[in-house]
Amino acid sequence: MRAASPLRLIRKYLSIIATILLFVLAFVAASLKYKGFGTLQVFFNMLIDNSFIIISAVGVTFVIISGNIDLSMGAMIAFTSMLAAALTENLHVNPLLTIAIVIAVGALIGTALGAIITFFKVPPFIATLAGMFMARGLCFLISIEAISINDPFFRAVSLYRIHLFGKAFISINVVIMLVVVLAAIYLAHFTRFGRTVYAIGGNEQSAMLMGLPVNRTKVLVYTLNGICSAVAGITYAFYMLSGYGLNANGFELDIISSVVIGGTPLSGGSGYLVGTVFGVLIQGIIQNVIAFNGTLNSWWTRIIVGLLTLMFIVMQRAFSAIKRKGSTSTFEMKSE
Protein backbone atom coordinates (compact mmCIF):
# COMPACT_ATOMS: atom_id res chain seq x y z
CA MET A 1 0.00 0.00 0.00
CA ARG A 2 1.39 3.33 -1.05
CA ALA A 3 1.61 5.88 1.75
CA ALA A 4 -0.71 8.80 1.22
CA SER A 5 1.21 11.99 0.67
CA PRO A 6 0.91 14.46 3.55
CA LEU A 7 -0.07 17.23 1.16
CA ARG A 8 -3.02 15.24 -0.11
CA LEU A 9 -4.14 14.43 3.42
CA ILE A 10 -4.05 18.13 4.25
CA ARG A 11 -6.16 18.87 1.19
CA LYS A 12 -8.64 16.17 2.08
CA TYR A 13 -9.06 17.41 5.63
CA LEU A 14 -8.52 21.07 4.81
CA SER A 15 -11.86 22.40 5.93
CA ILE A 16 -11.80 20.46 9.20
CA ILE A 17 -8.21 21.58 9.85
CA ALA A 18 -9.31 25.15 9.19
CA THR A 19 -12.11 24.77 11.73
CA ILE A 20 -9.88 23.33 14.46
CA LEU A 21 -7.17 25.89 13.75
CA LEU A 22 -9.73 28.65 13.98
CA PHE A 23 -10.89 27.32 17.33
CA VAL A 24 -7.36 27.03 18.71
CA LEU A 25 -6.36 30.47 17.48
CA ALA A 26 -9.49 32.06 18.88
CA PHE A 27 -8.96 30.33 22.20
CA VAL A 28 -5.31 31.39 22.42
CA ALA A 29 -6.09 34.94 21.38
CA ALA A 30 -8.90 35.20 23.91
CA SER A 31 -6.66 33.73 26.61
CA LEU A 32 -3.99 36.35 25.94
CA LYS A 33 -6.50 39.17 25.93
CA TYR A 34 -8.72 38.21 28.84
CA LYS A 35 -7.39 37.24 32.20
CA GLY A 36 -8.76 33.94 33.40
CA PHE A 37 -9.93 32.84 29.94
CA GLY A 38 -7.14 30.41 29.26
CA THR A 39 -8.11 27.83 31.85
CA LEU A 40 -9.25 24.26 31.53
CA GLN A 41 -12.48 25.12 33.28
CA VAL A 42 -13.43 27.74 30.69
CA PHE A 43 -12.97 25.09 28.03
CA PHE A 44 -14.95 22.58 30.08
CA ASN A 45 -17.69 25.14 30.56
CA MET A 46 -18.00 25.47 26.83
CA LEU A 47 -18.54 21.71 26.67
CA ILE A 48 -21.04 21.83 29.54
CA ASP A 49 -23.01 24.73 28.04
CA ASN A 50 -23.06 23.30 24.54
CA SER A 51 -23.32 19.55 25.01
CA PHE A 52 -27.01 19.39 24.05
CA ILE A 53 -26.30 21.49 20.96
CA ILE A 54 -23.47 19.18 19.95
CA ILE A 55 -25.69 16.12 20.38
CA SER A 56 -28.37 17.63 18.18
CA ALA A 57 -25.76 18.83 15.68
CA VAL A 58 -24.45 15.26 15.40
CA GLY A 59 -27.84 14.06 14.16
CA VAL A 60 -28.13 16.95 11.74
CA THR A 61 -24.65 16.26 10.42
CA PHE A 62 -25.88 12.87 9.18
CA VAL A 63 -28.88 14.52 7.58
CA ILE A 64 -26.70 17.08 5.85
CA ILE A 65 -24.12 14.53 4.72
CA SER A 66 -26.95 12.59 3.09
CA GLY A 67 -27.75 15.77 1.16
CA ASN A 68 -30.91 16.72 3.04
CA ILE A 69 -31.77 19.30 5.66
CA ASP A 70 -33.59 19.48 8.97
CA LEU A 71 -35.19 22.59 10.42
CA SER A 72 -36.94 21.03 13.39
CA MET A 73 -34.13 20.45 15.92
CA GLY A 74 -34.71 23.46 18.15
CA ALA A 75 -38.40 22.74 18.43
CA MET A 76 -37.69 19.05 18.94
CA ILE A 77 -35.31 19.85 21.80
CA ALA A 78 -37.96 22.05 23.38
CA PHE A 79 -40.64 19.42 22.89
CA THR A 80 -38.65 16.46 24.17
CA SER A 81 -37.41 18.34 27.25
CA MET A 82 -40.97 19.49 27.85
CA LEU A 83 -42.20 15.92 27.49
CA ALA A 84 -39.57 14.73 29.97
CA ALA A 85 -40.62 17.43 32.43
CA ALA A 86 -44.32 16.65 32.07
CA LEU A 87 -43.81 12.89 32.43
CA THR A 88 -41.74 13.14 35.59
CA GLU A 89 -43.48 16.07 37.24
CA ASN A 90 -47.12 15.82 36.23
CA LEU A 91 -47.46 12.08 35.73
CA HIS A 92 -44.71 10.97 38.12
CA VAL A 93 -43.31 8.45 35.70
CA ASN A 94 -40.08 6.79 36.71
CA PRO A 95 -37.21 8.96 35.40
CA LEU A 96 -35.49 6.13 33.54
CA LEU A 97 -38.76 5.10 31.92
CA THR A 98 -39.29 8.76 31.07
CA ILE A 99 -35.97 8.85 29.26
CA ALA A 100 -36.86 5.69 27.34
CA ILE A 101 -40.26 7.07 26.33
CA VAL A 102 -38.79 10.40 25.23
CA ILE A 103 -36.18 8.69 23.06
CA ALA A 104 -38.82 6.44 21.53
CA VAL A 105 -41.01 9.44 20.74
CA GLY A 106 -38.04 11.22 19.16
CA ALA A 107 -37.27 8.18 17.03
CA LEU A 108 -40.90 7.89 15.99
CA ILE A 109 -41.20 11.53 14.90
CA GLY A 110 -37.90 11.31 13.05
CA THR A 111 -38.98 8.17 11.23
CA ALA A 112 -42.31 9.71 10.28
CA LEU A 113 -40.60 12.80 8.85
CA GLY A 114 -38.08 10.61 7.02
CA ALA A 115 -40.84 8.49 5.52
CA ILE A 116 -42.77 11.54 4.32
CA ILE A 117 -39.62 12.96 2.74
CA THR A 118 -38.50 9.71 1.17
CA PHE A 119 -41.69 8.09 -0.02
CA PHE A 120 -43.86 11.08 -0.81
CA LYS A 121 -40.99 13.18 -2.10
CA VAL A 122 -42.02 16.16 0.02
CA PRO A 123 -39.06 18.57 0.03
CA PRO A 124 -37.13 17.94 3.29
CA PHE A 125 -37.09 21.57 4.11
CA ILE A 126 -40.88 21.79 4.01
CA ALA A 127 -41.52 18.54 5.87
CA THR A 128 -39.14 19.42 8.69
CA LEU A 129 -40.53 22.95 8.80
CA ALA A 130 -43.90 21.39 9.48
CA GLY A 131 -42.19 19.14 12.01
CA MET A 132 -40.88 22.25 13.73
CA PHE A 133 -44.34 23.81 13.93
CA MET A 134 -45.74 20.54 15.17
CA ALA A 135 -43.15 20.13 17.91
CA ARG A 136 -43.66 23.70 19.12
CA GLY A 137 -47.40 23.24 19.05
CA LEU A 138 -47.12 20.00 21.03
CA CYS A 139 -45.07 21.84 23.66
CA PHE A 140 -47.88 24.26 24.27
CA LEU A 141 -50.43 21.51 24.13
CA ILE A 142 -48.61 19.97 27.11
CA SER A 143 -48.46 23.25 28.97
CA ILE A 144 -48.37 26.94 28.24
CA GLU A 145 -46.31 27.56 31.33
CA ALA A 146 -42.82 26.38 32.03
CA ILE A 147 -42.62 23.15 34.03
CA SER A 148 -39.74 23.05 36.45
CA ILE A 149 -38.27 19.65 37.19
CA ASN A 150 -37.94 18.64 40.83
CA ASP A 151 -37.43 14.94 40.31
CA PRO A 152 -34.50 13.85 42.55
CA PHE A 153 -32.89 11.77 39.80
CA PHE A 154 -32.90 14.63 37.30
CA ARG A 155 -31.60 17.02 39.96
CA ALA A 156 -28.85 14.64 40.98
CA VAL A 157 -27.70 14.14 37.39
CA SER A 158 -27.89 17.84 36.77
CA LEU A 159 -25.76 18.81 39.73
CA TYR A 160 -23.24 16.00 39.56
CA ARG A 161 -19.71 17.14 38.80
CA ILE A 162 -16.95 14.92 37.52
CA HIS A 163 -13.58 16.31 38.53
CA LEU A 164 -10.77 15.95 36.05
CA PHE A 165 -7.20 17.18 36.25
CA GLY A 166 -7.51 18.68 39.71
CA LYS A 167 -10.16 21.28 40.26
CA ALA A 168 -11.64 21.43 36.79
CA PHE A 169 -14.90 19.54 36.29
CA ILE A 170 -17.40 18.48 33.68
CA SER A 171 -21.06 17.48 33.96
CA ILE A 172 -22.74 14.19 33.10
CA ASN A 173 -24.11 15.89 29.99
CA VAL A 174 -20.56 16.16 28.68
CA VAL A 175 -20.13 12.42 29.16
CA ILE A 176 -23.39 11.74 27.34
CA MET A 177 -22.26 14.05 24.56
CA LEU A 178 -18.91 12.27 24.22
CA VAL A 179 -20.64 8.89 24.07
CA VAL A 180 -23.01 10.15 21.38
CA VAL A 181 -20.15 11.61 19.34
CA LEU A 182 -18.12 8.40 19.55
CA ALA A 183 -21.12 6.27 18.63
CA ALA A 184 -21.80 8.59 15.71
CA ILE A 185 -18.22 8.36 14.50
CA TYR A 186 -18.52 4.58 14.62
CA LEU A 187 -21.77 4.69 12.65
CA ALA A 188 -20.42 7.14 10.08
CA HIS A 189 -17.12 5.50 9.31
CA PHE A 190 -17.24 1.87 10.32
CA THR A 191 -20.65 0.62 9.27
CA ARG A 192 -22.41 0.03 5.96
CA PHE A 193 -25.09 2.46 7.06
CA GLY A 194 -22.54 5.27 7.37
CA ARG A 195 -20.94 4.52 4.02
CA THR A 196 -24.34 4.51 2.38
CA VAL A 197 -25.15 7.89 3.91
CA TYR A 198 -22.02 9.37 2.33
CA ALA A 199 -22.80 7.61 -0.95
CA ILE A 200 -26.33 9.04 -1.08
CA GLY A 201 -24.98 12.50 -0.39
CA GLY A 202 -22.42 12.05 -3.17
CA ASN A 203 -24.93 11.01 -5.79
CA GLU A 204 -28.31 9.57 -4.87
CA GLN A 205 -29.07 8.30 -8.35
CA SER A 206 -25.74 6.48 -8.56
CA ALA A 207 -26.20 5.04 -5.09
CA MET A 208 -29.53 3.60 -6.22
CA LEU A 209 -27.98 2.15 -9.39
CA MET A 210 -25.13 0.70 -7.33
CA GLY A 211 -27.76 -1.34 -5.53
CA LEU A 212 -27.56 0.43 -2.18
CA PRO A 213 -30.64 0.58 0.08
CA VAL A 214 -31.23 4.28 -0.59
CA ASN A 215 -34.79 4.69 0.69
CA ARG A 216 -34.25 2.71 3.85
CA THR A 217 -31.09 4.64 4.66
CA LYS A 218 -32.73 8.01 4.07
CA VAL A 219 -35.51 7.17 6.51
CA LEU A 220 -33.02 5.80 9.03
CA VAL A 221 -31.00 9.01 8.88
CA TYR A 222 -34.05 10.92 10.04
CA THR A 223 -34.75 8.29 12.69
CA LEU A 224 -31.22 8.76 13.97
CA ASN A 225 -31.68 12.50 13.86
CA GLY A 226 -34.89 12.19 15.86
CA ILE A 227 -33.09 10.08 18.47
CA CYS A 228 -30.30 12.67 18.68
CA SER A 229 -32.86 15.45 19.13
CA ALA A 230 -34.50 13.48 21.93
CA VAL A 231 -31.18 12.80 23.67
CA ALA A 232 -30.36 16.49 23.24
CA GLY A 233 -33.75 17.30 24.77
CA ILE A 234 -33.03 15.10 27.78
CA THR A 235 -29.60 16.64 28.32
CA TYR A 236 -31.24 20.03 27.90
CA ALA A 237 -33.68 19.05 30.66
CA PHE A 238 -30.70 18.07 32.85
CA TYR A 239 -29.08 21.40 32.02
CA MET A 240 -32.10 23.66 32.56
CA LEU A 241 -34.10 21.52 35.01
CA SER A 242 -37.25 22.76 33.35
CA GLY A 243 -39.25 22.47 30.20
CA TYR A 244 -40.76 25.40 28.33
CA GLY A 245 -42.32 25.77 24.90
CA LEU A 246 -40.21 28.76 23.91
CA ASN A 247 -36.90 27.19 24.91
CA ALA A 248 -34.23 26.57 22.29
CA ASN A 249 -35.88 29.12 20.03
CA GLY A 250 -34.06 29.65 16.75
CA PHE A 251 -31.51 26.96 17.50
CA GLU A 252 -32.24 25.22 14.21
CA LEU A 253 -30.28 27.61 12.11
CA ASP A 254 -27.55 28.11 14.72
CA ILE A 255 -27.01 24.36 14.65
CA ILE A 256 -26.94 24.26 10.88
CA SER A 257 -24.37 27.03 10.76
CA SER A 258 -22.28 25.14 13.34
CA VAL A 259 -22.31 22.13 11.06
CA VAL A 260 -21.27 24.31 8.12
CA ILE A 261 -18.52 26.01 10.13
CA GLY A 262 -17.47 22.50 11.12
CA GLY A 263 -16.61 21.83 7.50
CA THR A 264 -19.63 19.86 6.29
CA PRO A 265 -20.84 21.35 3.02
CA LEU A 266 -24.61 21.66 2.75
CA SER A 267 -24.46 20.02 -0.65
CA GLY A 268 -23.84 16.73 1.14
CA GLY A 269 -21.47 13.84 0.56
CA SER A 270 -18.69 14.84 2.90
CA GLY A 271 -18.08 16.11 6.40
CA TYR A 272 -16.80 14.94 9.75
CA LEU A 273 -18.44 14.76 13.15
CA VAL A 274 -15.32 16.09 14.87
CA GLY A 275 -15.68 19.17 12.69
CA THR A 276 -19.24 19.61 13.88
CA VAL A 277 -18.08 19.49 17.52
CA PHE A 278 -15.59 22.27 16.86
CA GLY A 279 -18.15 24.18 14.80
CA VAL A 280 -20.36 24.34 17.88
CA LEU A 281 -17.41 25.19 20.14
CA ILE A 282 -16.43 28.13 17.93
CA GLN A 283 -19.85 29.61 18.58
CA GLY A 284 -19.21 28.84 22.25
CA ILE A 285 -15.95 30.82 22.18
CA ILE A 286 -17.66 33.82 20.64
CA GLN A 287 -20.27 33.78 23.40
CA ASN A 288 -17.60 33.41 26.07
CA VAL A 289 -15.50 36.24 24.66
CA ILE A 290 -18.53 38.48 24.72
CA ALA A 291 -19.22 37.47 28.31
CA PHE A 292 -15.61 38.10 29.34
CA ASN A 293 -15.39 41.38 27.51
CA GLY A 294 -18.43 42.89 29.15
CA THR A 295 -18.57 45.86 26.77
CA LEU A 296 -19.33 43.89 23.61
CA ASN A 297 -22.97 43.27 22.99
CA SER A 298 -24.62 39.91 22.56
CA TRP A 299 -25.76 40.65 19.01
CA TRP A 300 -22.19 40.44 17.85
CA THR A 301 -22.49 36.68 18.29
CA ARG A 302 -25.07 36.53 15.55
CA ILE A 303 -23.23 38.84 13.22
CA ILE A 304 -19.94 37.00 13.63
CA VAL A 305 -21.59 33.61 13.27
CA GLY A 306 -23.27 34.87 10.10
CA LEU A 307 -19.98 36.08 8.69
CA LEU A 308 -18.20 32.85 9.62
CA THR A 309 -20.93 30.82 7.96
CA LEU A 310 -20.56 32.90 4.82
CA MET A 311 -16.79 32.53 4.92
CA PHE A 312 -16.97 28.76 5.20
CA ILE A 313 -19.60 28.40 2.50
CA VAL A 314 -17.62 30.52 0.07
CA MET A 315 -14.48 28.58 0.98
CA GLN A 316 -16.26 25.29 0.27
CA ARG A 317 -17.54 26.60 -3.07
CA ALA A 318 -14.01 27.65 -4.00
CA PHE A 319 -12.62 24.22 -3.08
CA SER A 320 -15.18 22.33 -5.06
CA ALA A 321 -14.58 24.62 -8.04
CA ILE A 322 -10.83 23.91 -7.86
CA LYS A 323 -11.51 20.20 -7.50
CA ARG A 324 -13.78 20.16 -10.51
CA LYS A 325 -11.18 21.96 -12.56
CA GLY A 326 -8.58 19.46 -11.39
CA SER A 327 -10.58 16.43 -12.40
CA THR A 328 -11.55 17.77 -15.83
CA SER A 329 -7.94 18.54 -16.55
CA THR A 330 -7.01 14.91 -15.98
CA PHE A 331 -9.78 13.97 -18.37
CA GLU A 332 -8.39 16.31 -20.99
CA MET A 333 -4.92 14.91 -20.65
CA LYS A 334 -6.44 11.52 -21.19
CA SER A 335 -8.34 12.46 -24.30
CA GLU A 336 -5.46 14.21 -26.03
Partner: peptide, 13 residues
Protein backbone atom coordinates in the same frame (compact mmCIF):
# COMPACT_ATOMS: atom_id res chain seq x y z
CA UNK B 1 -29.57 31.38 6.11
CA UNK B 2 -26.58 33.70 6.41
CA UNK B 3 -28.72 36.80 6.55
CA UNK B 4 -31.17 34.96 8.78
CA UNK B 5 -28.44 34.39 11.34
CA UNK B 6 -26.73 37.77 11.00
CA UNK B 7 -29.80 39.92 10.27
CA UNK B 8 -31.20 39.99 13.80
CA UNK B 9 -27.75 40.83 15.07
CA UNK B 10 -27.61 43.79 12.71
CA UNK B 11 -31.10 44.88 13.76
CA UNK B 12 -30.12 44.72 17.43
CA UNK B 13 -26.95 46.62 16.70
Amino acid sequence: LILYVAGRGVAQM
